[in-house]
Design a protein around this nucleic acid. Structure first.
Lengths: 145, 145
DNA sequence: GGCAGATTGACAACATGCGGTCAGAGTGAC
DNA sequence: GTCACTCTGACCGCATGTTGTCAATCTGCC
């Protein structure tokens, strides 16, 4: 059976692999100026949005990654002074990750680069297209996770 | 300025990261039965489509990856008897990668698992949605690469 | 209180991707 | 032919992600 959807979907899968790689490369270039990497601005984005602090496994769940991978990133970011670990009143071993002043400053700088980048990549794309694509992706996520 | 596109796009980016990870996990599960990994069926797919044989850098360009990454995969696949290197009449050092009989057989098995998987993930999605998403992704690829 | 099961941190092994570098091989302009 | 440039294979180091395991901690149920 020659389903046109099958080919379309596999082409889409290949394009996702490709865009993923290009986004990481683009992200690294953008983050370079502020001393970050793609992996770190993924993490810093989650931390910045939660003023109360977040545990490492919490970040991992938000990103859909393993807690071990996130732990390694946050450990390095602590060494670099971007985040600090605070005592978690609700868990003796699992501390809360919070941005330091430096971390907040870096996040602000990141935003000042990231926002124009995001906008420039959507100039030729309508809101409807973006919504359609996003819905499709979220449907896939729900199916697969 | 609070562009709704900005947030939509960043949400889309996050979903791409997530789907990429889930696809690799799904791919590994699927490929497990036939003794492959995600990285290998990406490569085997390119090789299978070119009966004349392809060079390693050619596969890398097709996948948008570094030739070093592909080289390592094909070296392992040669050891496992899935591909063989043939003399390239047009280049003394860069040989052509071709599927062995075993490789062709594994590719067929892969297809028999991959096709139903692809179709099952598009049941609730229209051709138009798939085309819109694919166009959007390809536009991004052109912008970024 | 006590116990089973889930969560977490720490550590390890491993796969996959990137970039850099070097020397050998092709290519094109002159 | 020669020279500059590009492409290629073979290394290397490194970042990021996965999984597995173990012990400590938390949580919910009895």
């Amino acid at each position: 059976m020659h389903s046109p959807k099958r080919k379309l979907f596999l082409d889409l899968v290949r394009s996702i692999f490709r865009v993923n790689g290009l986004l990481l490369a683009d992200g690294d270039r953008m983050a370079e100026g502020v001393g970050l990497t793609s992996a770190r601005w993924k993490v810093i984005g989650v931390v910045a949005l939660t003023s109360a602090g977040v545990t490492v496994p919490g970040i991992a769940r938000a990103l859909g990654q393993s807690r071990q991978a996130v732990q390694r990133i946050t450990d390095v970011m602590q060494t670099d002074g971007l985040v600090r670990y605070e005592i978690n009143p609700r868990h003796k071993r699992s501390s809360l990750v919070q941005l330091t002043d430096l971390g907040q400053q870096v996040y602000n700088e990141l935003r000042s680069v990231q926002d124009p980048w995001a906008i420039s990549h959507t100039e030729e794309t309508s809101v409807e297209e973006l919504e359609t694509a996003l819905r499709l992706m979220q449907r896939l996520i729900n199916k697969m996770e």
